[in-house]
Write a protein that binds this DNA or RNA. Sequence first.
DNA 1: CTGAAAGCGCTTACAG
DNA 2: CTGAAAGCGCTTACAG
Lengths: 327, 327
Amino acid sequence: MKKTISDIAQIAGVAKSTVSRYLNGGSVSDATKEKIKRAIQETGYIPNTFAQSLKAKKTNIIGTIVPRLNSYASSLTLIGIDEQLKELNYQMLISNSNQDLEREIENIYTLANQKVAGIILLATQITDQHIEAFRKIDIPVLLVGQQHKEVYSLIHDDYGAAYDIGQYILAKGHKRIGYLGVGEHDIAVGVKRKQGFKEAVDTKSDCEVKYYETSFNIADAIGTASEIIEEFQPSILACATDNIALGALKAAYMRGLRVPEDLSITGFGGYQVTEVIHPALTTVKFYYKEVGQRAARNIVKLINEEEIEKISISKYEIIERESVDNI
Amino acid sequence: MKKTISDIAQIAGVAKSTVSRYLNGGSVSDATKEKIKRAIQETGYIPNTFAQSLKAKKTNIIGTIVPRLNSYASSLTLIGIDEQLKELNYQMLISNSNQDLEREIENIYTLANQKVAGIILLATQITDQHIEAFRKIDIPVLLVGQQHKEVYSLIHDDYGAAYDIGQYILAKGHKRIGYLGVGEHDIAVGVKRKQGFKEAVDTKSDCEVKYYETSFNIADAIGTASEIIEEFQPSILACATDNIALGALKAAYMRGLRVPEDLSITGFGGYQVTEVIHPALTTVKFYYKEVGQRAARNIVKLINEEEIEKISISKYEIIERESVDNI
DNA sequence: CTGAAAGCGCTTACAG
DNA sequence: CTGAAAGCGCTTACAG
């Protein structure tokens, strides 16, 4: 059933090497080309990628490790990577670590096993084990979303975006401000966003600002936001992700508060749904897909041993919509 | 740098075949085991998967083709597949066709090239070219979400769910009913859901029902829903997906209609966000993740040449929330 | 332009 | 339990 290059060679009446040359664009006479083409069509021959890779000693596969598949940010980033990679004649292999750091480390080694040409890691946190793995596998690695001094990274400007959101809130006249963030193990979302925000609101001394923490989970966010509303009664709640903001919105409705009249809310991310809901959410949009595309270009450069910057920072844009009131 | 099995054999002072046996759990004496283990640790040896697969003539990789990556349904299905496959010692390779049928066909062949053990296709429509590809590659294939008489399939009960939604709407006393679906090239969403719905509402003769069509795109849905509201002024708008329902909700708000007081809305899918928005959406929940898991089990059975049903139909559940009014 | 041969890194009967 | 040898399906110098 399954045809090999030898079968084709035999049917076409040429040597295996000639078929191989035909397949790889080497010099073959037109007459020979014709014969081989016919043989391939007739048999439905498909070359064995393993044998090819075994000899060629390299693949055109880029392994991409994601913490979770059902996230707006991951999905868009993956799409960007995939699109760009296809253009560059590479292929994307997705490996899901399901928010499990151990599995993430495992995935690095598995990908190395499969001789991927490079690895893109949509990172949440980078541990020593990560660094150890990167060293051992000896394959180009690119981090997306988090940075580390020993690895090439592509990040969103979390600090800058948060600073701008802070300034924006101040400009709207808010003085009783709640910030709902996540744990500090996540440097980008947990640390940088909070830092930028704090830096901005600290420029004004007549504000009362309180910082809270929840998880990335919407249900958790609803609970935490609800408590904050009860305890602190802020005029605005700045949330570290759009999902958290969605939770805050729900909490507001559940407590009978109108948004933005009774409580203003902001998010982070620019998820599509934030535009469709009512009131539409004021948030900061990150360019996930573009970052994915850039990641693809960068990893390929790394593979080709071209120079790239150790760390690139991507832009953002404040999207002003309906969820923030002017006081 | 890169170590091979020969290096390990040499360092451990044994034959390659012994190392191979060690790696694959064949019988090796404890003393030899120890030597090999040490050699592997010392060198950080990682076996070459290509060489392994070339000999073994099979892989434990399941190719999964998705129409798009940024969809709630795909993501959850993928997670289910991935989880279950890991348990069965298989690996998932995701291939995105980006809603491009040609690319989908290409992906089938590419996956075959890579000698995947089986293919799961999250399908939108099945053309003759698909069937031709399935025949040529001679690899087990499983369809998810759509059915075809020549291929093993796993589907959601689109017809049944739509019928129930229709009945539910009738029971709520609605008599002026709009149905907002999608094109008929998508059998599951475009044909089956409409059919089930129609069947249900046709049981009552004093209703006026109008059928409309839009795309899967939220922005399109907003536009179409807006027109429907203007022209037909239904008391309820049943939407063929949750995203379309989200668009309808937005359209209602934009026209100053209250939901559900002025217009009731229902969806299809059970996306997480439908629970968080206000008003929470009445919809039908499909078990995407579970279907993914089952798909994984089924494709593995197919690979092992075990019997499975040609077509399995998955359950659903009507989720009654706040977006439908009692008339 | 074309072919014979060696070799990529493994695995798998087959002997011992 | 262990090793030598053949072979998986390709590619790549090397001759011609």
